[in-house]
């Protein structure tokens, strides 16, 4: 209200020469520029200055209206456009980063969404179905794994598990392996999520490829003489790692499905509304990859007895079930997909 009044006053006043008016207002514009810089510097603790900034911003908005209406010179109008845009971006900031809100997202919103989203179950079935199928094929036919994985890779895998864990595999490079597993696997997970934007096809292909690749190796190694070494290694981190791939794929499918089933929005608007929620699921998947990388680097190659590794896997599975099922069901309210 106050704003429109002041424009009206300016409109009615005996016209100053434009040059004079601009010269009069320039100090105020310079002050607003300084305010914008101050806001960008993160200085947000001084309420008086913020109030002053808001007031000044509104008065410069008036100048911009006047400049456009009265056809001030292009350079000045351009300057005011930029100044108002910068100040606007600072004044109407989006919500800031709040730990508590993120805690709620991770512990309440995401489990509920994971449990009720059909994309999760499609991803689950696709991954585990193909994984199981490839494992069976690898078990039953000697040449399947070789056809899928390739001779060289298969030989490397066989070499790796030729010796039992008790001899201290990767003894001196466990931290390095942890880093590598995070960099490699979590990177694959994020790419899997991102490629979901191609109508979900990218996520499906990434999941399918990993399921068949890993399944074939599993089947081959279980049938091989060093199967006990292999199983001792993969048991502990398996639950977190494989669930993380499924969740990455599910997040990607959610992203792609938003473009197909728009629920009445335009395709881009539908994508925009869904993407933050899909990103949260991908974020949880990345956390799981981090856990898995730690276990894979530190516990899996250690000389600890198999029972301990199996216990790790059991606890991981229990945690995952507790997270998705217990927290998911407990969280009341409409699912917001």
């Amino acid at each position: 209200m106050r704003m429109s009044l002041s424009i009206r006053e300016l409109w009615r006043m005996p016209a100053m020469k434009v040059a004079e008016h601009i010269a009069d207002r320039t100090p105020e514009w310079k002050k607003l520029e300084a305010d914008v810089r101050w806001c960008r510097g993160g200085g947000k603790r001084d309420p008086e200055r913020i109030a002053e900034f808001a007031r000044r911003y509104r008065s410069v908005c008036g100048d911009l209206s006047l400049a456009v209406a009265m056809r001030w010179p292009a350079t000045t109008t351009r300057f005011l456009h930029e100044l108002v845009a910068d100040a606007h971006t600072q004044l109407y900031r989006a919500e800031s980063f709040k730990i508590r809100r993120w805690g709620r997202t991770v512990l309440v919103d995401v489990p509920r969404r994971i449990l009720r989203d059909p994309c999760t179950w499609i991803a689950f079935v696709v991954f585990w179905g193909l994984f199981g199928g490839a494992m069976l094929a690898g078990l039953l036919r000697d040449d399947f794994a070789e056809a899928v994985v390739g001779r060289d890779t298969l030989e490397k895998v066989e070499d790796m598990y030729a010796k039992p864990m008790e001899t201290g595999l990767f003894e001196d490079s466990r931290t390095a392996m942890t880093g590598f597993y995070l960099f490699n696997n979590a990177g694959i997970g994020l790419r899997c999520f991102a490629s979901g934007i191609f109508l979900g096809v990218g996520s499906l292909l990434t999941m399918a490829f990993n399921a068949i690749f890993l399944g074939a190796i599993f089947g081959h190694m279980i049938a091989s003489p060093s199967s006990s070494n292999f199983l001792t290694f993969v048991t502990a981190h398996g639950p977190f790692e494989l669930t993380a791939i499924v969740l990455s794929g599910a997040a990607g499918l959610r992203l792609g499905w938003a473009i197909i089933d728009t629920k009445g929005w335009s395709r881009i608007e539908s994508l925009r509304r869904t993407a933050p929620r899909a990103l949260e699921i991908a974020g949880v998947a990345t956390i799981l990859f981090l856990f898995a990388a730690y276990i894979e680097g530190q516990i899996s190659p250690s000389e600890l007895p198999y029972t301990f590794k199996a216990l790790t896997a059991a606890i991981s599975t229990a945690l995952l079930l507790g997270y998705v099922v217990v927290l998911g069901i407990r969280a009341r309210g409409e699912p917001s997909l």
């Binding site: 845009a85 606007h88 900031r93 989006a94 999520f193 490629s195 191609f198 990218g202 990103l279």
Partner: peptide, 24 residues
């Protein structure tokens, strides 16, 4: 943000993670 507001952390992460799809 395309509403003219400053972007939030979620938007910043999202557009940067999706870069891998953009550069496919």
């Amino acid at each position: 943000s395309d509403t003219g507001l400053a972007i939030n952390a979620g938007q910043a992460m999202l557009r940067n993670i999706l870069r891998s799809a953009d550069l496919f």
